[in-house]
Nucleic acid binder design. Structure first.
Length: 397
DNA sequence: ACTGCAATAAACATTA
DNA sequence: GTAATGTTTATTGCAG
């Protein structure tokens, strides 16, 4: 993964509110006040109280937000379910189950004191810690039908990352660019998913979903890992907020894995059936439901540009697709090196089906295990947040 | 220094 | 004709 937040300095200048703040070391206060770690844990966590405001300002970094975002999602019990059609409804809920507009929205609309109001304002202007690919991925994944038109993707991003509302319109271009260029996203035939309007629906290519998940993990895990191993060196801008250590309930890799596990669950065949069922506009298992030609005749993209690469990735490059473009994007064009999601590959025989099922079971087991683990965390968070609320009440009296 | 990746800009084509 | 959408190319900066 390359730079995630990285924008060229000169380009950054075009992005309102980002440059000066980030350059000056004023870390993007993801979630700022009112966000999970601070608002819900900060008041109660001894660790958090140990953090002075300056440190908090400095350490309220992307991961902070990520942590919140993911946990909120999982608290919900799975993305998509509650989301209004078109990604309109926020799938993000705070840990208490209260609906929240999203990390930034909650930050900007929070009334729970915490950091200064200016900090909250800044948070709105801070660039999301996710690449466009991941933003798109999240938007799509959190849509009920697991497919969104570009417009709705814009909407989702705008809703959850108000930064973009004030950002130059170039980000939309970037979104489209990503959709178009990133192998992870597939265009769905319009008449299947969209009755009218311009443009197509976009969905996540199941083949690359693991890659995206992995990317999502990779993108924040390195810092998340630091939760467990506090840096020996003085806290830097990239060092994790220590207040994320939630009363002995620190975020560990397994926790982040739990986060991705949730997504994995959503990508499980059950979900596939759900999402591509009768009420779903798209059926990814049908090659003809996806417009796949576009990337095939596209020349080898710049080495892996825009794509998430796992080992299987290279195998999936166009070069390895001798078939027609349509077939290339179809589920059957999957590289043999990495077994496809069972739901997407028509089993050649019973054995293949069995193997696929076993693999799926394994995956589900892992996901379930991670979720169980997550449940413990959630309990911890709830306890923490309730304690915080109590403290707050008492403090007011 | 090199390479890969992501972000961004821009031009162009297509479509509603 | 216009705006939205989709595709493609080029450039830049950062990180490994």
């Amino acid at each position: 993964m390359g730079p995630i937040i990285g924008m060229s300095p000169d380009k950054k200048a075009e992005s309102p509110g980002v440059v000066a703040e980030e350059r000056a070391g004023r870390q993007a206060p993801w979630g700022g006040a009112g966000t999970l770690p601070e608002a819900q844990c900060g008041a109660s966590s001894p660790l958090a109280t140990r953090l002075d405001q300056a440190a908090a300002d400095e350490e309220l970094t992307n991961l902070n937000w990520l942590h919140e975002n993911l946990l909120q999602n999982f608290t919900l019990g799975g993305p998509g379910g509650e989301a209004a059609p078109g990604g309109g409804g926020s799938p993000l809920f705070d840990i208490e189950g209260e609906p929240a507009l999203g990390p930034l929205a909650s930050a900007s609309s929070s009334s729970s004191g915490g950091a200064g109001q200016s900090g909250e304002r800044d948070s709105v202007k801070s660039k999301p810690p996710f690449s466009f690919s991941l933003l798109i991925y999240m938007a799509i994944e959190q849509s009920p039908s697991k497919s969104l038109p570009v417009k709705d993707i814009y909407g989702w991003i705008l809703e959850h990352f108000p930064y973009f509302s004030s950002a130059p319109t170039g980000w939309k271009n970037s979104v489209r660019h990503n959709l178009s260029l990133n192998k992870c996203f597939r265009k769905v035939e319009k008449n299947l998913g969209k009755v009218n309007g311009k443009g197509s629906l976009w969905c996540v290519d199941p083949e690359y979903r693991p890659n995206l998940i992995q990317a999502l993990k990779k993108q924040h895990f390195p810092t998340a890992h630091a939760f467990c191993t506090p840096p020996a060196s003085p806290p830097s801008a990239s060092s994790p907020p220590r207040h994320l250590l939630l009363q002995g309930c620190s975020l560990k890799e397994s926790d982040i894995d739990a986060a991705t596990a949730m997504m994995l669950l959503n990508s499980a065949p059950g979900h596939h059936a759900d999402r591509c069922g009768p009420d779903s506009p798209l059926d990814l298992s049908r090659p003809d439901s996806v417009l796949g030609g576009r990337r095939a005749h596209r020349q080898p993209r710049r080495a892996g540009s825009e794509g998430f690469h796992s080992d299987e990735d290279s195998d999936a490059e166009p070069d390895t697709y001798p078939e027609s473009p349509e077939q290339r994007r179809g589920p059957h064009g999957r590289p043999s090196s990495s077994p496809p999601p069972p739901s997407l590959k028509a089993p050649a025989n019973k054995r293949a089906r069995r193997e696929a099922k076993a693999e799926l079971d394994e995956e589900l087991k892992e996901a379930a295990g991670s979720l169980l683990h997550l449940a413990g965390i959630r309990t911890c968070l709830e306890a923490t947040s309730k304690h915080a609320a109590r403290s707050k009440k008492l403090g007011r009296k």
